[in-house]
């Protein structure tokens, strides 16, 4: 069955499907119940599944994750909503020192099938702490898995796959696109495995690597470049930990050029690791250094200048020019 959905609707439908499929799946977070979340991602779930399964929590992020650990020990599969990226840090200790390590600490006796949903990225004109991209901090933490959706179809399937996964998954949702582009979502299709990247546009001159909010940007950049006769391949990484880079290596071996695009700060961001891995695996195929288009190594700016801070079409195309001219 095919339905037209925004990303917000697709996530909502995916969460609903996961709750129907497994009575152990719980939603937890601030305002996720009656209100349906500040972005309405959990809209209607409490009404249909009850207050025991869709829990409006006190305002304490560490406790959201800390109690999720206890619930997971008891056999539940908590899906925790962190209201905004910049509010995840009070829970950082529980995520890094407990959620990520308990399976290891317990010699595999205690899996932590917890999903941590985080609306991330900028572009919504918000005040401080509402536009951040903390993915590298979680991707750097052994024991966690980190994925980012970029499209309603992926959102629908990936959230269900993340909930079904037995490892803890940080699930990043590009909040700017929640209520943006709609897509036809076939809810009876067979999705690709969760921890795989995907080529979203084929090309032969240069490989653009993106995830979450920058996938759309890179698709636009490839379209613009094609009008100048340049053929750019766009790969949506989808999974940041583990990385699925074999398709990236295959692409770069063909194109010889790679540009990584993300909103997070450049230094020690995902682009750094990806560039390192590409140079290791594709050394002789590279015709230019791997370039990164990213946020600056600064705090996220006040919103009136965020569009200049964020990677945009011109900065991506500029990097493409520099790479091809190398």
């Amino acid at each position: 069955m095919t339905t037209t959905m925004t990303m917000a609707k697709a996530l909502n439908a995916g969460l609903r499907a996961a709750m129907e499929a497994d009575p152990k799946v719980l939603m937890m977070g601030e305002d996720v119940g009656k209100l349906g979340g500040v972005f309405r991602i959990t809209d209607g779930l409490q009404k249909d599944f009850g207050e025991d399964r869709v829990i409006d929590t006190p305002l304490a992020e560490s406790a959201i994750l800390g109690t999720a650990v206890g619930l997971a020990m008891r056999g539940y599969r908590p899906v925790c909503e962190i209201q905004f990226d910049g509010f995840v840090y009070p829970a950082y200790d529980q995520i890094v020192s407990q959620v990520a390590k308990i399976h290891f600490r317990s010699r595999g006796r205690m899996p932590m099938p917890i999903v941590i949903r985080i609306p991330f990225g900028g572009g919504i004109g918000a005040v401080e702490h509402h536009s951040e991209s903390p993915e590298a901090q979680f991707a750097h933490t052994a024991g966690l898995k980190v994925v980012a959706c970029s499209h309603p179809t992926d959102a629908y399937w990936m959230i269900q796959q993340a909930i079904a996964a037995d490892d803890p998954v940080v699930f990043l949702e590009p909040k700017r696109q929640y209520h943006g582009e709609k897509a036809e979502v076939d809810t009876e299709a067979t999705p690709p495995p969760l921890f795989t990247s995907r080529t979203v546009r084929e090309g032969s001159d240069l490989t653009l690597l993106a995830y979450g909010p920058t996938v759309r940007l890179c698709r636009d950049a490839a379209l613009a470049a094609s009008e100048e006769g340049r053929s750019l391949e766009v790969i949506d990484l989808r999974t940041l930990s583990p990385l699925d880079l074999e398709p990236v290596f295959a692409s770069v071996r063909r194109t010889g050029h790679a540009v990584v695009v993300h909103e997070a700060a450049r230094s020690l961001g995902m682009g750094s690791e990806i560039a390192a891995r590409i140079q290791q695996e594709c050394f002789y195929a590279l015709e230019a250094p791997v370039l990164r288009v990213a946020g600056f190594d600064t705090p996220y700016p006040p919103s009136r200048i965020e569009e200049e801070y964020l990677p945009d079409l011109d900065r991506v195309l500029d990097a493409v020019d520099r790479s091809l001219a190398y």
Binding site: D52, A63, L65, G66, G70, L71, M73, R74, R109, M110
Partner: peptide
């Protein structure tokens, strides 16, 4: 084995286990 003994693993980060306990208790309720 925490489940077999009813005794969780030692937790070194001070106080973190009180939240685990509370979550586990919420699981008992459910």
């Amino acid at each position: 084995d925490p489940e077999a003994t009813g005794f969780g693993l030692y937790t070194i980060v001070i106080g973190a286990q009180t939240l685990h306990a509370t979550g586990y208790a919420m699981g008992l309720q459910r």
